[in-house]
Design a protein around this nucleic acid. Structure first.
Length: 470
DNA sequence: AGTTTTTTAGG
DNA sequence: CTAAAAAAC
């Protein structure tokens, strides 16, 4: 018997480790298991733990429908897994590889514990189409620039989705250990209304997206009021859908297109999948990026300490409407539109001049779809500390961005009720209205807490100093 | 995956 | 004079 240890691959279909793809999977049935690891849970906020519980419950249902069960345990995996192997007489444990620093440390400890217990084990690449290290520059180095990575990624052959294991391949077991509740795990009920994070929801979403919105994606993905993005991020974060299945659906959409514009739009979406894998390989080769700048400047960057500014940012009370709308969407839905993520990240780092780590930590606790590689890559990009760091090109003007991507202020008004009924042109020129006019339009909405033009200069000076120039 | 300033074109 | 394009940062 083999145990498949589920982590961020909470599905039965298109699961390479579960299917025993490309590994010596051994004889006998597969016993699926999930371990609630306090160290991992401590790292997540309520939205992510709630989503995890939902996904694990549905996974268990899927196994029960197949006449098997998901064994649920709690504790440190390095002690739990050898115990489970012993209890069920499993001679082998498999899992899908985790590319984060924390995950790799945990997996190394589990490897050692299983070796000590005389249990065989194998880790499988599953979460990405092209595993870290397989796409390199012609000199053999991992890519640090997306464009060239993308060209190779796009042209390389992809492996197909793998089938769910047949019921006969699964262990005939029953486990009456309940999936823990939030209370069992001492985690608060999330304040946000969360998306459904299950394989069923993921498949529906993928099918819907590929039927229609994928063809508008290129033109409309940056308009947060449009809602034509895939909304697959939480599913990719938990693995409630497999990446090969996602890719195949986009290829089918490509085959159905009847114009170059539609084909380009599908490719544009696929490039977003490639961004995910680009940042995954950046993280794999540079595990310290979770806490350190990817790019080293001559001198340390002199980020400011501004607890009030940070709090206003978190609360969505900065007086910059698009920034506040984004931060309030995060609070309400544990989610934020990607364009707005860039805007609020630029605002924190380039207007408030606050260290990106403060923002990254907030996102990590709040976002239901948090993914270390993506979020860290995004934050370091915005902060000009990541790959392709460009201080001059990465200072967003929050008014211009709002005006350009939410021209009718539809998105802004949805999340900032104080601005309900205020004309779009007043919203987009909020920073230059005189206090009396602001008071007249929206007495409860704050004035801008900083002057963007001034802070833009300060940000440039901060990077000049870091670069060691006068 | 940008913004601001300067230059040029057009009425 | 405005608006679009190009250049600079």
């Amino acid at each position: 018997m083999r145990i498949h240890w589920h982590r961020r691959d909470l599905r039965v279909a298109d699961n390479r480790g579960l299917a025993g793809d490309n590994i010596e999977a051994g004889e006998g049935p597969v016993l699926p298991a999930f371990v609630f690891d306090p160290a991992v849970l401590a790292h997540a906020g309520p939205p992510r733990v709630a989503a995890l519980l939902e996904a694990v419950s549905e996974l268990r249902d899927a196994y029960r429908e197949r006449g098997s069960d998901l064994v649920v345990a709690r504790g440190d995996p390095q002690t739990v897994l050898p115990t489970l192997a012993d209890e069920f007489g499993a001679e082998r444990v498999t899992w899908n590889r985790d590319y984060t620093r924390l995950g790799r440390k945990r997996d190394a400890a589990v490897r050692e514990a299983l070796d000590d217990a005389g249990v065989e084990r194998a880790a499988v690449h599953d979460a990405v189409l092209h595993e870290p290290g397989t796409i390199r520059t012609n000199d053999g180095d991992p890519y640090q620039v997306f464009t060239y990575f993308w060209k190779k990624w796009r042209d390389r052959e992809k492996s197909p989705a793998v089938d769910a294991p047949a019921p006969a391949a699964l262990a005939d077991v029953e486990d009456d250990t309940p999936v823990p509740t939030l209370a069992d795990l001492s985690v608060d009920e999330p304040a946000a209304s969360l998306p459904t994070v299950t394989s069923t929801a993921a498949r529906e979403r993928l099918a819907d997206f590929c039927a229609e919105d994928i063809y508008r994606y290129e033109d409309r993905r940056d308009y947060p009021a449009d809602g034509c993005t895939s909304r697959l991020s939480q599913h990719l974060a938990y693995g409630t859908i497999g990446i090969r299945e996602v890719y195949e659906a986009t290829e089918e959409a490509y085959a159905r297109s009847d114009s170059d514009a539609e084909r380009e739009s599908v490719r544009e979406f696929q490039s977003q999948l490639a961004w995910r894998e680009f940042y995954t390989q950046v993280l794999w080769f540079n595990p310290s990026v979770v806490t350190e700048n990817f790019k080293t400047y001559e001198n340390p960057i002199e980020w400011r300490s501004d607890p009030e500014g940070l709090q206003a940012w978190k609360d969505g009370e900065t007086g910059y409407p698009i920034v506040d709308a984004g931060m309030r969407q995060l609070e309400a839905e544990a989610y934020m539109h990607n364009r707005v993520r860039m805007i609020v990240a630029s605002f924190l780092t380039k207007d408030l001049l606050i260290d990106w780590r403060k923002g990254y930590d907030w996102f990590r606790k709040r976002l239901v779809d948090h993914d270390t590689a993506n979020d860290n890559g995004g934050w370091q990009w915005a902060a000009s500390t990541g790959t392709d760091a460009q201080p001059y090109f990465r200072i967003f003007n929050p008014m211009t961005q709002g005006d350009r991507y939410d021209p009718d202020a539809e998105y802004i008004r949805e999340y900032v009720p104080e601005l309900d009924g205020v004309p779009a042109d007043a919203i987009h020129s909020w920073h230059e209205l005189d206090p009396g006019t602001r008071e007249m339009h929206a007495p409860d909405y704050p004035a801008p807490i900083v002057d963007h033009a001034e802070r833009r200069e300060a940000a440039l000076a901060m990077f000049e100093a870091a670069r060691g120039e006068d």
